[in-house]
Nucleic acid binder design. Structure first.
Lengths: 352, 352
DNA sequence: CTGAAAGCGCTAACAG
DNA sequence: CTGTTAGCGCTTTCAG
């Protein structure tokens, strides 16, 4: 890069015959080039770039014009190195969940919010130890993290917080681990709406289908608590069918158990749409009509639940908003609550 | 802020006062600290770190021990600045598609493959112009990109390639734009399997449900071509029902059209599971049994298609593998084909 | 309101 | 096999 080069704009073609992974980027226009061309100092360019008000309008305009002309783009790495802060955030999710719709919706929300603040999101699947997560923070590649924990005591959260990484946990109330914030959906409130809806339809014998092994702080616990509370307040009985897992087959098993006895419930709340689909199948198998003989309400509002027969009444799980809120919490730490609960709303369709 | 703000050079011009910014990271142990403590030069530390064979085993061990003791973690930003290359790859997807299962599966595959090479994935949703994508490359934050294009002529691909960014396009054959590689699923082959399967079941009057407006290079075109070719070779007639879109309702409309006439097809291939679900509904509405009166085959193998009544025979859309392959192509450019086609396989279930 | 100087922590060239 | 030297491009600090 000779100082006499008359056309610093043209990036030199980097030649490499190396067997390495990706070729190195060609040299680019730097802030010094801009400074020289605009007849100001590099410092001024830097200030103009971040819109400092302490630069005269005339200088700003001139520098902007030069930037445009030279096609200047600031080098994020150099900025990060010097300022010790990156405009990148980590999204941590258990490897097994990366392809799930939950992660997809959270990532969609997170990337949208991040983009509005000119940040970007680095997705990092982690194994059971969760140790991979903290590496990118310690390497200073990201300056904060939002985490979808594998469980309430996911070690990734502790590792991140322990390393000093600003962290926001999503969807579950992680074990008392000070130093991070939490954004959850209002699972309990959603469940209350679901059960209240059944009550308002006149149902007094209710059924609940949910996975067994209730752990406080989880999505499932909140939904179960909400349902129990609403039933109690409504003076209705709530018969619980505990099942093994969240799958459709589990829902069928639970539904069958509830429906095959005397005094069977006339309204069933399954704490996920997949479980509810199983309940629908069980009702069909038992020769019961929905909602005539038994009403069914799910939770999640999965994209396909509207296409079932009948279309499923369900509660929307506001994942996109949770993802957005988590990033917002991270970037605007001064905003009030340490704890945010995103409302969930009932969607009434044919199954009730 | 505004997407129409015509100042590509200057990010966040003028409004940085509120500056959502995270606190700077604390100072950390540097390679110089390690060097001093180990009594070697900084250069040696660097070489040890990347496992150079030109360092004596004794020195390696000593340096490693010191690194461990001091809790050294290399600063990725400094490395990137100096070496002009980042261990981060961009995943570009249309904003509207970021939450879709397609993106989720591709991202899952991409992150897995990337992690194996010690790279990470930055997810970037882009608007219709696709210009946001290239920014992260020009800022040297990423050193390559995999793209899920919004259409065959997505401008993001051209922008990336034009900026010199190593690029791999996924799922669609982007318009002739040299300088990038492509990884697609074998949509045509999958469709051939679907139709051959119907033929092997003895069906000779076949129906096809697909969105109209066939554009070469798209997923839908490949599936349609495959189906047509297989029907032709099998000596069967293929009646085409063109519909407006990919939705369940479109499938119902197409299915109804095929099924309500004389000489109706006895086997229908819908080029997506959502369309196939619609066909199933149409068959039910027409009082036809599946597969007794009409067999139905879909494409995609969405997670819920196994739970329909009857469970759907379909072709697996190997998205995870496509995501993996795209990243592999990017990181191992010397590997043979410019063009990779990931096989798709038929999954026979109850609907046929 | 602007400039000069000094590094951030690392890797790359070249010596030995 | 290892050390020395010289920056990568930016932001910061301190002077004016």
């Amino acid at each position: 890069m000779s100082a006499t080069d008359p056309t610093p704009v043209v990036p030199r073609a980097g030649q490499d015959a190396e067997g390495a992974a990706l070729r190195r980027a060609p040299a680019r226009v730097t802030s010094r080039d801009v400074a020289r061309a605009a007849g100001v100092s590099q410092n001024t360019v830097s200030l103009v770039l971040k819109g400092s008000t302490r630069i005269s309008a005339a200088t700003q305009a001139r520098v902007h014009a030069v930037m445009e002309r030279l096609g200047y783009e600031p080098n994020a790495m150099a900025a990060a190195l010097r300022s010790r802060t990156t405009r990148a955030l980590l999204f941590v999710a258990p490897r097994a969940a990366v392809h799930s719709h939950v992660t997809a919706e959270l990532v969609a929300g997170a990337t949208d919010e991040a983009a509005e603040h000119d940040y970007c999101i680095v997705v990092r699947p982690v194994g059971p130890h969760g140790t991979e997560a903290v590496e990118l923070y310690r390497r200073q590649f990201v300056s904060g993290a939002v985490v979808l924990p594998a469980s309430v005591d996911d070690p990734a959260v502790g590792a991140l917080v322990g390393a000093g990484c600003p962290t926001v946990v999503m969807l579950t109330t992680s074990a008392a681990c000070p130093g991070h914030r939490t954004v959850v959906a209002d699972d309990a409130g959603g469940a209350v709406q679901a059960v209240s809806h059944l009550l308002s339809r006149g149902h007094r014998r209710l059924g609940l289908v949910a996975p067994r092994g209730l752990v406080e702080g989880t999505i499932s616990a909140s939904r179960i608590r909400g349902a129990q509370q609403a039933a109690l307040q409504g003076g209705a009985q709530l018969e619980e069918a505990w099942v093994d897992d969240w799958g459709v087959r589990d829902g069928s098993a639970g539904g069958a158990r509830l429906l095959q006895r005397q005094g069977r419930p006339t309204g069933i709340f399954a704490i996920s749409d997949a479980l509810a689909l199983g309940v629908l199948a069980a009702a069909g198998a038992a020769g019961l009509r929905v909602p005539g003989d038994v009403a069914v309400v799910g939770f999640d509002n999965r994209e396909w639940s509207q296409y079932w027969n009948p279309p499923l009444t369900t509660v929307e799980f506001p994942l996109r908003s949770v993802g957005r809120a988590a990033v917002r919490r991270l970037l605007c730490p001064e905003e009030p609550p340490e704890w945010e609960r995103v409302p969930a709303r009932l969607i009434v369709r044919g199954s009730s």
